[in-house]
Design a protein around this nucleic acid. Structure first.
Lengths: 160, 160
DNA sequence: GGGCGATTGTCATATAGCCTTACAATCGGC
DNA sequence: GCCGATTGTAAGGCTATATGACAATCGCCC
């Protein structure tokens, strides 16, 4: 029921409006299903924020991670994203191909590359971040501030 | 940041363990990101429950919907799942191919088919449902009963 | 009753995002 | 210096979806 539905990643889930006249039965008691629904809604907020650029959630995540962890290796990036090494490499290729990130040899390890955001990457991330956060805040505004904090706490416990 | 990450659906998100030593920065303040993490965890519970059969979240959803809404059309099924009609058709093909569901002509509309669970489909759903619910409950047990109710309430508001 | 736009299922085609496997270069410990 | 482990890479493939076109049928309007 979860993302996979997905879920979990790549696919572009379109809105899952409740269809009138349909009996959802036990689906409404399954936490995973409720999570998926909410996540799809959140994704739409993200899509609105990143419209234009081909930025997807994992790419945005990678940009943030690169900025705050300069020199990170592709293997570790893959772990952070929860994907195979080869997938992280493709992602790095994509970022590098648009001049958003670059690979630099690592003095301490001849096998590994260090990943770094370029100036262009930093600029993109700056605008992107503002828009993503604004949309996320607008999305979360369906809840009171108090509820938002509580939600984040509960989600944190679930993901742990 | 939502599911799509994935997805929404189809993809098989692997666990997203927190990587020690990595700075996640603002990601931890984004509701969509938190949702995605929790959803991946929930998906793992689902995968454990449906291991063996090739049942994915959307397929499980379809089984439940078919059982509680016999005679539903493929177009409506697609709406419920949030996918294009063609995707719903493929799903119906899959279910029919394993003898879990069948299409019956609809007397009132020569274009549309009505979808119905077969006896075999009902049986599978019965065992599946028990396992899925058990795993979902185990997953949700990271929260107190009270918190679970609160979470469902908040998620409902977000998805609305 | 006939005509016409809308709807339904279907099919072909394309794509995105992944994974798996295999491999060469390199590292680290013994 | 040797050998198992690790890193990035490349090739190939798979799955879930979307898009667009199509024939059959419906519903409405005249």
């Amino acid at each position: 029921m979860a993302k996979p539905h997905r879920s979990a990643r790549g696919p572009r889930p379109s809105s899952i409006a409740r269809v009138p006249g349909i009996d959802y039965a036990e689906l409404d008691t399954i936490v995973g299903y409720a999570l998926r629904r909410a996540q799809v809604a959140a994704f739409e907020a993200f899509a609105r924020a990143s419209a234009g650029a081909g930025i997807t959630p994992p790419r945005f995540t990678a940009l943030v991670i690169l900025r705050n962890n300069p020199g990170i290796s592709q293997t570790v990036l893959g772990e952070v994203l929860g994907t195979a090494r080869s997938g992280a490499m493709l992602l790095a290729d994509w970022l590098e191909g648009r001049g958003l990130a670059e690979r630099r040899h690592r003095p301490d390890d001849g096998r590994a590359w260090g990943l770094y955001l370029t100036a262009k990457g930093e600029r993109l991330l700056d605008t992107l971040r503002r828009r993503v956060r604004a949309q996320d805040r607008r999305f979360a505004a369906r809840l009171a501030k108090r509820e938002q904090r509580e939600l984040m706490r509960l989600l944190g416990k679930l993901a742990a």
